Lab assay of single mutants.
Amino acid sequence: RQGFVPAAYVKKLDSGTGKELVLALYDYQEKSPREVTMKKGDILTLLNSTNKDWWKVEVN
């Protein structure tokens, strides 16, 4: 499932696989259909980080 999360809630990881991955630093509950819920410690695939406030991710 793809959607947006606050950029301040995730940290980029060095995956070494060519995929950009991020680590969820905090729990986040989606507040609109365009967002996704994540739990602290989740590893997500980063799809787009051009917006400084909201990053598009895919929940694996």
Results as ranks from 00 to 15, higher is better:
residue 54 W to R: 03
residue 43 I to A: 03
residue 3 G to T: 02
residue 45 T to K: 12
residue 7 A to V: 06
residue 56 K to V: 14
residue 38 M to W: 02
residue 52 K to S: 12
residue 49 S to M: 10
residue 41 G to I: 01
residue 21 L to W: 10
residue 19 K to V: 13
residue 45 T to V: 15
residue 4 F to C: 11
residue 30 E to S: 15
residue 26 Y to F: 15
residue 9 Y to W: 07
residue 32 S to Q: 08
residue 60 N to C: 11
residue 18 G to E: 13
residue 1 R to T: 08
residue 55 W to G: 00
residue 32 S to N: 12
residue 44 L to T: 01
residue 35 E to L: 05
residue 50 T to F: 09
residue 35 E to R: 04
residue 42 D to S: 06
residue 33 P to L: 09
residue 45 T to L: 15
residue 45 T to M: 11
residue 60 N to I: 14
residue 28 Y to C: 02
residue 24 A to N: 01
residue 25 L to N: 02
residue 19 K to M: 11
residue 31 K to I: 06
residue 51 N to F: 08
residue 41 G to R: 02
residue 41 G to F: 05
residue 12 K to M: 10
residue 45 T to F: 13
residue 58 E to S: 08
residue 30 E to N: 08
residue 39 K to D: 04
residue 58 E to I: 08
residue 2 Q to R: 15
residue 12 K to T: 07
residue 19 K to Y: 11
residue 44 L to K: 00
residue 50 T to Q: 11
residue 34 R to N: 14
residue 19 K to R: 14
residue 14 D to P: 15
residue 33 P to F: 09
residue 51 N to Y: 08
residue 55 W to L: 04
residue 2 Q to I: 13
residue 38 M to S: 00
residue 36 V to C: 08
residue 48 N to Y: 06
residue 7 A to H: 03
residue 10 V to Y: 01
residue 40 K to M: 08
residue 38 M to Y: 01
residue 41 G to N: 06
residue 25 L to S: 02
residue 1 R to M: 08
residue 2 Q to K: 10
residue 34 R to A: 13
residue 51 N to P: 05
residue 30 E to P: 15
residue 8 A to E: 10
residue 53 D to V: 15
residue 18 G to Q: 10
residue 51 N to H: 13
residue 22 V to C: 11
residue 58 E to C: 08
residue 17 T to P: 14
residue 39 K to G: 05
residue 47 L to R: 03
residue 52 K to T: 12
residue 3 G to S: 02
residue 17 T to F: 13
residue 12 K to H: 08
residue 17 T to L: 13
residue 48 N to I: 08
residue 10 V to N: 00
residue 52 K to N: 11
residue 16 G to E: 12
residue 3 G to Q: 02
residue 22 V to Y: 10
residue 19 K to E: 12
residue 43 I to T: 06
residue 16 G to R: 07
residue 31 K to W: 04
residue 34 R to D: 12
residue 28 Y to S: 01
residue 23 L to H: 05
residue 43 I to M: 07
residue 15 S to A: 11
residue 24 A to M: 03
residue 21 L to Y: 13
residue 19 K to S: 10
residue 45 T to W: 13
residue 38 M to K: 00
residue 38 M to I: 15
residue 7 A to K: 06
residue 48 N to H: 07
residue 55 W to I: 05
residue 27 D to C: 06
residue 37 T to Q: 05
residue 38 M to D: 00
residue 59 V to F: 09
residue 5 V to K: 01
residue 32 S to F: 06
residue 9 Y to N: 05
residue 31 K to D: 06
residue 23 L to E: 14
residue 44 L to G: 05
residue 15 S to H: 12
residue 22 V to G: 13
residue 44 L to D: 00
residue 37 T to Y: 04
residue 46 L to M: 03
residue 25 L to M: 09
residue 4 F to T: 03
residue 49 S to I: 07
residue 7 A to C: 07
residue 52 K to R: 12
residue 10 V to S: 01
residue 28 Y to M: 01
residue 12 K to L: 11
residue 21 L to A: 06
residue 18 G to S: 12
residue 26 Y to T: 08
residue 30 E to K: 13
residue 28 Y to L: 01
residue 3 G to M: 06
residue 58 E to T: 07
residue 54 W to A: 02
residue 59 V to R: 11
residue 1 R to E: 05
residue 6 P to Q: 02
residue 14 D to M: 11
residue 56 K to S: 07
residue 37 T to W: 04
residue 54 W to G: 01
residue 16 G to Q: 13
residue 37 T to V: 03
residue 5 V to N: 01
residue 35 E to Y: 05
residue 49 S to A: 14
residue 42 D to P: 00
residue 15 S to M: 13
residue 15 S to F: 11
residue 39 K to M: 09
residue 48 N to V: 08
residue 50 T to M: 11
residue 50 T to G: 09
residue 8 A to Q: 13
residue 2 Q to N: 08
residue 27 D to F: 04
residue 45 T to D: 05
residue 11 K to F: 09
residue 39 K to L: 08
residue 14 D to H: 13
residue 14 D to A: 12
residue 13 L to F: 11
residue 8 A to T: 12
residue 48 N to T: 07
residue 24 A to K: 00
residue 22 V to T: 02
residue 21 L to S: 08
residue 17 T to V: 14
residue 9 Y to E: 01
residue 22 V to P: 00
residue 51 N to D: 15
residue 32 S to V: 04
residue 52 K to F: 10
residue 2 Q to M: 08
residue 60 N to E: 13
residue 29 Q to F: 13
residue 27 D to Y: 04
residue 22 V to Q: 01
residue 59 V to Q: 14
residue 28 Y to D: 00
residue 2 Q to T: 11
residue 19 K to H: 12
residue 28 Y to G: 00
residue 39 K to A: 08
residue 49 S to Q: 10
residue 24 A to W: 01
residue 10 V to T: 04
residue 7 A to S: 13
residue 28 Y to R: 02
residue 57 V to M: 01
residue 57 V to T: 01
residue 52 K to I: 10
residue 30 E to C: 11
residue 53 D to M: 14
residue 56 K to P: 01
residue 18 G to D: 12
residue 14 D to G: 15
residue 23 L to P: 00
residue 56 K to A: 08
residue 24 A to L: 02
residue 6 P to E: 01
residue 34 R to Y: 13
residue 32 S to W: 06
residue 30 E to F: 06
residue 40 K to I: 06
residue 16 G to T: 14
residue 55 W to A: 03
residue 39 K to T: 09
residue 17 T to H: 14
residue 21 L to N: 05
residue 8 A to M: 12
residue 47 L to V: 11
residue 19 K to A: 11
residue 41 G to Q: 02
residue 43 I to K: 05
residue 50 T to W: 08
residue 32 S to I: 04
residue 12 K to G: 04
residue 7 A to Y: 03
residue 41 G to H: 04
residue 13 L to V: 11
residue 2 Q to L: 06
residue 25 L to R: 05
residue 20 E to F: 11
residue 14 D to R: 11
residue 41 G to T: 02
residue 18 G to H: 12
residue 60 N to Q: 14
residue 12 K to D: 04
residue 37 T to C: 07
residue 13 L to K: 04
residue 4 F to H: 05
residue 44 L to S: 02
residue 58 E to P: 00
residue 49 S to D: 14
residue 46 L to N: 00
residue 55 W to F: 07
residue 53 D to T: 14
residue 1 R to Q: 09
residue 37 T to K: 05
residue 58 E to A: 11
residue 11 K to M: 15
residue 22 V to W: 08
residue 25 L to C: 07
residue 21 L to T: 09
residue 56 K to Y: 15
residue 48 N to G: 06
residue 31 K to A: 10
residue 53 D to C: 13
residue 52 K to E: 09
residue 30 E to V: 07
residue 53 D to W: 15
residue 5 V to R: 00
residue 36 V to P: 02
residue 33 P to E: 12
residue 10 V to I: 06
residue 39 K to Y: 11
residue 12 K to E: 05
residue 54 W to D: 02
residue 23 L to I: 15
residue 38 M to L: 09
residue 1 R to A: 08
residue 22 V to D: 01
residue 24 A to F: 01
residue 7 A to T: 06
residue 45 T to N: 09
residue 49 S to L: 04
residue 51 N to G: 10
residue 55 W to V: 06
residue 15 S to V: 14
residue 7 A to R: 11
residue 2 Q to V: 14
residue 60 N to R: 13
residue 19 K to G: 09
residue 50 T to R: 10
residue 33 P to T: 09
residue 23 L to R: 09
residue 11 K to R: 14
